[in-house]
């Protein structure tokens, strides 16, 4: 059964879902597995596993650099999904969403990708450059493999919000503000009004992403949405500790601890 369905009921939960993003293979394969478990331990509810891509159009500099490091490790869509069973074996029980651009999926073959994602223990997929109009076949096929296709809405979605939100599965990824992924100092006021509109149309939890990097951001969203997605802020720390995370157990432990502390602060805020 799809592990995300548990959260679909959490639509109006009073605690926000915490959804961290990590890039598969940055800085190494084994560090990615360690990070996943640390994040679960810190209280993460859903894990977004990013697949590195050469031309990540929706990403800012932090995730671009992260993808580059992962690609240098030889990471691919297939080998990234191989990490999920390793995570599961070590005790990862939270749902995993595979985040990938469409071209690697296209090369692997849509069905082969979804079949593998299901086999390896993923619960959802998210393809940022496969908008609603291009995703009908993909979403239907994903369902056959018990995978939720996570949709995105953006502040520019305007008249599109209803059709996207009413078809949403798993959770609805609400892009907080225009632009690419990356940390932002402040949240625009319009974001809150936008989130309200999205919630009215959505039958699944609305999680807000893009730019969330500080406890204040999480605080300001509590009670407003059902979840927060944090990617760049975590991968920035991974970048800072890339050498330690790729080094021996002792050094790795310290770095993982620091990341865990950061995430715990975000979650408890």
């Amino acid at each position: 059964m799809n592990r995300l369905t548990v959260y679909e009921a959490a639509h109006n939960a009073d605690y926000p879902l915490f959804i961290p993003f990590i890039m598969a293979g940055d800085p190494t394969r084994s560090a990615t597995v360690d990070l996943a478990l640390q994040l679960q331990e810190a209280g993460a509810h859903i894990l977004e596993l990013g697949i590195p891509y050469s031309d990540p159009l929706a990403d800012g500099p932090v995730l671009q650099r992260s993808a580059k490091r992962a690609l240098q490790q030889g990471m691919s869509l297939k080998s990234a999904m191989d990490l999920i069973p390793e995570m599961r074996k070590r005790g990862l029980t939270i749902p995993v969403v595979v985040f990938t651009y469409y071209n690697p999926v296209f090369q692997m073959g849509m069905e082969s990708f979804l079949e593998t994602a299901n086999e390896k223990g993923a619960d959802g997929v998210l393809v940022p450059d496969l908008p609603f109009e291009e995703s009908q076949d993909f979403t239907a096929l994903a369902k056959d493999y018990q995978l939720a296709n996570i949709s995105l809405v953006a502040p520019t979605s305007t008249t599109r919000v209803h059709k996207i939100a009413s078809h949403a599965e798993g959770f609805l990824y609400c892009v907080s503000s225009l632009g690419v992924t990356g940390t932002r100092e402040v949240f625009p006021q319009e974001a809150y009004d936008f989130i309200h509109t999205v919630k009215e149309h959505s039958a699944v939890p609305v999680a807000v992403g893009f730019g969330i990097s500080k406890p204040e951001h999480v605080q300001s969203l509590s009670g407003i949405c059902s979840g927060v997605i944090v990617g760049s802020a975590i991968m920035k720390l991974v970048e800072k500790h890339a050498n330690e995370l790729a080094a021996g157990e002792e050094k790795k432990k310290e770095a993982l601890q620091e990341i865990k502390t950061f995430v715990s602060t975000l979650i408890s805020s």
Binding site: A58, P128, P131, E134, G179
Partner: peptide, 21 residues
């Protein structure tokens, strides 16, 4: 009307750009 030339073309962009297109 989907912007396709046979099977080619289309709109494979992030949702943020769809309204602009």
């Amino acid at each position: 009307n989907r912007g396709r030339f046979g099977s080619f073309g289309g709109k494979f962009v992030p949702e943020t750009l769809m309204y602009a297109l």
